[in-house]
Design a protein around this nucleic acid. Structure first.
Lengths: 207, 207
DNA sequence: GTCTATACAGAGATAGAC
DNA sequence: GTCTATCTCTGTATAGAC
């Protein structure tokens, strides 16, 4: 493992574990077991190192789900995969990492670029599955796959932050989201009559 | 306006505008037009000032919606209020403020306390309305009002962070959530037969 | 209560030896 | 490529005059 790689791994780990305010060139280098000056030699600045680390994390993570995304055949299965994915990515620290990057993005344009890239990678993946599954579902035409994908990804970020201040509270929120997803999935089994009725009502409400 | 109040207002503003990494005793004091040392005289530390500022922001904000929450009579109306509330609180910077506090909470226990308090204030308010409205709705018994309230509040936080890196993306996510809410509200008009069918399906899926 | 001045720690970043 | 040493800046926090 090269020094470059060690720094990337240490940066991702530090970001997830200690948050933005806990990362510094010194802290990362210490975790990687190398000298502090090497951060600047290899990456130019701490922000640039963080950006590279986030890109690497998200590329690896997304790639590791590609097959499972492709295998999903129904909204119910997608729901189950979503549960798994979120649980796994949280354990890996990738959700916390994202949350920290996004909050730092407000000030740091380099982190903003990293956050944009990461969200784009995740949402385009989710969107592709939704675009494949929504046709024929009750919400077809009512819910935009791209918007839905973004809402899911954004929501997970928020709930991870929530878990940081109230673990149990965030868990109950996730349970509820599961239940809501199940309700929507169940709607698909009610058949075309119910579907038409829902469409009519919704159109009158949101135009 | 006392110096104390000026510091509280300046802290809230700085947090919302510049984010956690942009706030410091110096930055806040400068914005308030007072000396830096007064932060420590009045509040002891920067974190304690931020905590006080967040408590004040959320107390004021929640109080300003109390009447409107009480007037809500249906899920559709609640949806409309939610839209208004989120738009207004974003303009005021309160959502951004919360997002920053939550992300800093990972390291700083004082900020964590502030975040916990703020989430609790908002969610208990939303929960009260949901507990009043959900009985008689399709999702009664399937969706826990407390979990739902927490999911909404947490989701908004995440979407605010998302907006920081991709404004248009976050908007499309919010539009989709509106549409989803409308679907659920529409379900309530389908009558008891559809409701029973949904319940049956959901129970089989999530136990 | 408010100010000036300052101690002190930690940050980012660079120079230059090896 | 890696290290030591160091510069500079910014941040928290305190002491003490007013």
């Amino acid at each position: 493992m090269t020094t470059r790689d060690r720094l990337l791994a240490a940066a991702a780990e530090a970001l997830a574990r200690d948050g933005l305010s806990g990362v510094s060139a010194r802290a990362i280098a210490c975790r990687a077991g190398v000298n502090q000056a090497l951060v600047f030699y290899h990456f130019g600045s701490v922000s640039d190192l963080l950006e590279a680390a986030v890109r690497r994390s998200v590329d690896l993570a997304v790639a590791s789900y590609r097959d499972r995304f492709a295998d999903v055949g129904s909204l119910g299965e997608l729901l189950a995969l979503g549960r798994d994915l979120h649980r796994m990515e949280r354990r890996r620290g990738n959700v916390a990492q994202m949350a920290q990057v996004m909050s730092g993005a407000q000030r740091d344009p380099i982190l903003a670029k990293a956050g944009r890239y990461a969200m784009q990678r995740w949402t385009s993946e989710i969107e592709a599955v939704l675009a494949r599954l929504l046709p024929g579902s009750v919400v077809e035409g009512l819910v935009d796959p791209r918007g839905r994908a973004r809402a899911v990804a954004g929501g997970f970020i928020g709930l991870e932050l929530y878990a940081g201040v109230d673990r149990a509270g965030a868990e109950s929120a996730l349970d509820t989201l599961d239940a809501m997803g199940a309700v929507l999935a169940a709607l698909d089994d009610l058949g075309p009559m119910a579907s038409r009725a829902v469409h009519g009502r919704v159109r009158r409400v949101i135009g």
